[in-house]
Amino acid sequence: MKIKNLLPGLLILFSPFAFAHPGHWGNHGFESGILHPLTGVDHLSVMISVGVLAALFGGRSRWQMPLSFIALMIVGGILGVSGLIVPGVELCIAFSVVAMGVLLWRSVQISHQWVVALVMIFAVFHGMAHGEEMPLNTQALEYFSGFVISTSLLHMTGMAIGVTVLRLSVSGRLVKLLGAVVALLGGSFLLS
C-alpha cells in the first residue's frame, strides 16, 4: 500500500467533521446528555453563538432566542429518538455553523425575526442529532434533561461573551472576528 493512498483516509479520520459526533463519552442517560453538546465542536459553536446573538440583539431577544432554540431542540430530539430518518442532518448542522458565523458577522444588521426563525430551524437539526445518538438502554427523560441543561449553560456562556464584547470599544471588530472564526469552522465541516 502506498503512503499517498493512506493519507486521504487518515485526513478523513482527523477531520473536524469526523469528530462532530464521535459517540460521546458517558454511557448513562443524564451523563451522556450533558456531554453530548460539549463534545461536539459543531454544537458548541452554534449554541454559544446563539447566546452571543441574543446578547447583541438585547431586549426580548436576550431570552427569546435561547428559549426558542431549546424548545425546538427538544422537538428535534423527540423526532430523532422516534426513529424519523431525515437525510442530511449532519450536513444541515454543518451549514448551521456557517450560517451562525455569517449571522455574527452581520450581527444586528439582519432582521430579528429572520434570525430567530433561523435559530429555531437550526435547533431542530441539532436536536435530531442529539436524539438519534441517544445511547441504548437510556431513559429519554434523563438524556434530554442532560442536553437541555448543557445547552442552557452554553447559551449563557455565549450571552456572557456577548455582553463582554458589547462593553469593549472595539466590539464590532470582535463580533466580526468571532463570526469569521465560526463560519470558517463550519466551512471546514462542509469540506470534510
Rank of each mutant, 00 (worst) to 15 (best):
H130W: 02
F147G: 00
P66Y: 02
I74Q: 09
M47L: 15
S32Y: 01
R106C: 03
S152I: 05
I78Y: 04
L6T: 11
P135E: 09
G59V: 05
R106Q: 02
I161D: 09
K2N: 13
L53V: 10
L10G: 07
G33I: 05
G33T: 02
V148L: 09
P135M: 09
V115A: 12
M1H: 07
A160L: 14
I70H: 02
I161G: 14
V182M: 11
K4D: 00
F125R: 02
V119W: 05
G88P: 04
L6C: 08
L67Y: 13
L67T: 09
D42E: 02
V182P: 11
V170R: 12
V46K: 01
L10Y: 12
L185R: 05
V102T: 06
F17Q: 10
V97Q: 06
M128N: 00
V108T: 15
T138D: 11
A123Q: 09
M134D: 06
S82C: 06
H24I: 15
N137L: 03
F19V: 08
A129G: 02
S49P: 07
S169D: 12
M100F: 14
V182L: 06
G33Q: 04
F189H: 14
V50K: 11
Q64T: 13
I74Y: 10
S171R: 04
V115F: 13
L174A: 10
V119K: 07
R173F: 02
L154Q: 08
A117L: 15
G83T: 03
I12W: 00
K4E: 00
E31W: 07
L67N: 04
V89T: 01
I161S: 14
R60Q: 08
I93S: 03
S150R: 03
R60C: 01
I85N: 10
Q109L: 07
L6P: 05
V175I: 15
A99S: 12
G51S: 07
A54P: 04
M65V: 03
P16E: 01
P16R: 09
L53D: 02
L136W: 04
R62T: 14
R167H: 13
F17L: 15
H43D: 15
Q64L: 15
G187F: 09
L10A: 13
E90Y: 03
H112S: 15
W63S: 11
L44S: 07
F14I: 10
F147K: 06
L184G: 13
A55M: 03
S45E: 01
K2M: 12
V75F: 15
S15E: 06
F125C: 01
F57G: 10
C92W: 03
G58C: 02
